[in-house]
Design a protein around this nucleic acid. Structure first.
Length: 218
DNA sequence: ATCCCGAGGG
DNA sequence: CCCTCTGGAT
């Protein structure tokens, strides 16, 4: 299945826009329970006004809340991004640390966010267990764990370190495009023949026709 | 109504 | 383990 994912999504990548590791960190915190498209509509104004941890730590919280409103959870996210900015200035010399154990000490930063930053700003392999990743690895029966930390460990044992970041991107892309939470587009899925969850539950009607005409080799 | 590249708190 | 934070798209 991994080979097909690799062929289907050879160029899968992080779709958040950023100019610095700090901006990627902030954008990733903002991406919780929001589409990255909406984050990308929000961050330009934020980064224009507050490009560095020093700027954001010294900002007026009400102004930041107003800027972050469209991303949802705007009070909690303001607290997180201003808090992590202050922590970066106080404890890390204003630089984003390149180690997981340091990143997760920042307010609002869990393992998922930390691994996004490691994988996309530091070239350090990281498994990012978000809602898509967890759903897909369970559908694929790669693990039956539901706790994100346990999923991360289980998948980490199945794949070599160097593949962790791209595997994360590919599963997330596949989850967004085909293997949706509610009505997966099984009829359009290149993994259909190999997928243990194929045909389970309702399928996207737009692709259902393909299920009846599976192709030349069935 | 349900989902979106979650994290912190109880 | 649960709950809450929150707005926009479908």
């Amino acid at each position: 299945m991994n080979r097909i994912l690799t062929e289907t999504y050879p160029d899968a990548h992080c779709e958040l826009n950023f100019g610095t590791p700090f901006q990627l960190l902030v954008a990733t915190v903002l991406s919780a329970q929001t589409t990255d498209k909406r984050v990308n509509l929000t961050t330009p104004a934020l980064f224009a006004k507050y490009p560095t941890p020093e700027d954001l730590a010294a900002a007026d919280p009400e102004d930041v809340e107003a800027l972050l409103k469209p991303t949802g959870f705007f009070r909690a996210k303001t607290k997180s991004v201003m808090g992590l900015s202050a922590a970066l200035v106080e404890r890390f010399g204003g630089e984003v640390p390149g180690r997981l154990n340091d990143l997760v000490t920042l307010p609002g930063v869990g393992r998922k966010t930390a691994n996004v930053v490691l994988g996309n700003a530091f070239d350090v392999p990281g498994i990012t267990v978000d809602t898509h990743f967890g759903r897909l690895v369970r559908r694929f029966a790669w693990t039956d764990e539901t706790d994100p930390d346990k999923v991360e460990r289980a998948i980490g044992e199945l794949f070599p370190r160097k593949d962790w970041t791209m595997l994360s991107h590919r599963l997330i892309w596949h989850g967004r495009r085909i293997c949706h939470a509610r009505r997966p587009a099984c009829g359009a899925c290149p993994l259909a023949a190999l997928c243990p969850a194929f045909g389970e539950g309702p399928t996207d009607p737009e692709t259902a026709e393909a299920l009846v005409k599976p192709g030349p080799f069935s």
